[in-house]
Each structure stands twice: as structure tokens, then as C-alpha cells.
């Protein structure tokens, strides 16, 4: 049993928040925080004061870059890593070297990487084409769908709405995704996207963030034809959706400089 008042007045909690206690003392404070809610509350107050001072200490106009930039950096960094994950192939490469001997040493890291990359691209482009076709088919079918169906889908309990906010190149744009994970279908409301410039098309991406991987959900050709709602199939465990502007026909991986809108799903 400790004397709460005395403990608080000793100043140990301030030093705990500042991070200047050694490991043993920190652990002791941690244990006491678990036992005494008054101490926990006091620590939160210290933290809030320190946070507030720091917040008001910066020049009035100094603002952080938007969170989207941070996500993009995470994403871009990840893209540099994929598909050249050399260490994954290390063990395999080593066994090849053992089997076929010295000659294999000439099978250099870069050649192997080139092959791996080429294979990944071929695989991806087939997938992208397939998905683009799929999106077109659905969009064509959509014309025959009644408006009631769209409304029923959007208002369904199983449908989650994901708002995509305008990014750096087009901050004024927006879009909404209505996603039903049960039926693996989505309606996009693209009212907030301007017509794509000639020779360009919007492309929808599903993103998973650990590791950060974009999957194309196809180009939004129906939007180019003036449609506001587009229906797309999505069986991915998407953690975010993004829309980029791409050359006609779409791209294998998103052109991040042309990221128009981005939004995180609640399911993640």
C-alpha cells in the first residue's frame, strides 16, 4: 500500500511521463498505475498538459502534411520492396548454389530479381485485364438494373459506406463506395469526380495495408460514359480504396502522383 498523495508529490509520475526513469522505476510506476486509478488519472493529466503545451508551442501556421501523405509514403516504400523480396528467396538460392555448384554463382541476384519481377508483372497484367473486363460487364448490365435495386443495396444493413476524400492532386474531388462484403459487390458513387481527361481513365484500387498491396478493381469506364453509379465486384479484404487517374486501358500498379481520392474501410 502506498500513500497516494506522497507518491504524487514525489514527482516520480512527471519523470515517468517525461521518460527519464530507469527501467526498474518505470516498471514500479506501471504496476502502481494498474493498482490505483487515481494515479492513472493523474498521469493522464500530466500527459495532457505536456501535449497541450507542445501543441500551442509551434508557430500558428505550421501544419503537418495530411495523413494521406503518410499512407502514401508507407505505400510507396512497400512498393519498392515488392516484388523484390530478396531475402525470401535466399534459402532457395543457396540450395541452388549447392546443387549446381560454382556456375550458379553467376546467376546473380539482379538476374533473379529481373525474372521474378517479370513474372509478377505478367501475372498482374492478366489479372488486371480480367478485372477490367469484369467491371465493364457489370457496368453494362447496370443500365438494365432498376434504380430501386441500387437504393436497396445502398440502404442494406450489410452494406458499409466508405468515403473517399480528395487527395493532393485533386483535393476538391470525392467519391463513395458502398460495399457489401456478403455479396462481394460494391456500388461506387462517382458524383464528385470530374470527367477524366481525354486518353485517361479512372481506376479503382483495393488496398491492403499489411503488407501494403494494391489490387486493381478495374477501370471506371462507365464513369467516362457519363454514369454516376458504377457496380464492381470485390472479394478482397480491402482496408482502403483509392482511385487514380491512369492512361486509357488502366495500369498494373497505381500511379500515386495521380491519386485522386482515398478512404479507409472500417473493416481492418
Amino acid at each position: 500500500m502506498i500513500d497516494i498523495k506522497e507518491y504524487i508529490e514525489s514527482g516520480i509520475l512527471e519523470l515517468y511521463v517525461a521518460g527519464t526513469l530507469n527501467r526498474e522505476d518505470s516498471y514500479e510506476v506501471y504496476s502502481n498505475l494498474q493498482k490505483y486509478p487515481e494515479l492513472r488519472e493523474y498521469v493522464q493529466q500530466i500527459e495532457q498538459t505536456v501535449v497541450k503545451i507542445a501543441e500551442v508551442s509551434k508557430p500558428k501556421d505550421l501544419k503537418a502534411k495530411p495523413f494521406g501523405n503518410l499512407l502514401r509514403s508507407l505505400h510507396q516504400r512497400q512498393q519498392k520492396v515488392i516484388p523484390i523480396r530478396w531475402h525470401h528467396y535466399m534459402g532457395w538460392a543457396a540450395s541452388v548454389v549447392l546443387m549446381v555448384g560454382v556456375a550458379s554463382l553467376y546467376y546473380s541476384k539482379s538476374e533473379l530479381n529481373e525474372k521474378l519481377t517479370a513474372q509478377t508483372i505478367v501475372k498482374d497484367s492478366i489479372k488486371t485485364e480480367k478485372q477490367a473486363l469484369q467491371a465493364d460487364l457489370i457496368a453494362a448490365k447496370l443500365e438494365m438494373n432498376t434504380q430501386e435495386e441500387v437504393i436497396a443495396f445502398i440502404t442494406s444493413k450489410e452494406t458499409v459506406k466508405v468515403d473517399l476524400a480528395g487527395q493532393k492532386v485533386a483535393p476538391e474531388t470525392y467519391a463513395s463506395v458502398y460495399w457489401n462484403q456478403d455479396t462481394e459487390e460494391m456500388y461506387l458513387d462517382l458524383e464528385g469526380l470530374p470527367p477524366a481527361p481525354k486518353g485517361k481513365v479512372y481506376q479503382l484500387w483495393s488496398l491492403t495495408l499489411n503488407p501494403l498491396t494494391p489490387t486493381s478493381l478495374g477501370t471506371l469506364d462507365a464513369h467516362s460514359q457519363g454514369k454516376r453509379f458504377v457496380k464492381v465486384g470485390n472479394n478482397n479484404a480491402s482496408q482502403a480504396f483509392g482511385i487514380t487517374l491512369e492512361p486509357e486501358g488502366g495500369s498494373i500498379s497505381p500511379t500515386l502522383e495521380q491519386l485522386y481520392t482515398l478512404g479507409l474501410t472500417k473493416i481492418s
Binding site: 504524487i8 514525489s10 514527482g11 509520475l13 512527471e14 519523470l15 495532457q48 498538459t49 505536456v50 503545451i53
Partner: peptide, 15 residues
Amino acid sequence: KTRSRSCLSSLKLSL
């Protein structure tokens, strides 16, 4: 240690 407490508590936001 003691002064960390006395100085900061004079600023503490009243929650």
C-alpha cells in the same frame, strides 16, 4: 524530481 512536479502542476490544465 520534486521541481518537475511543482513546476508542471502550476500549469496543469484543470480537468
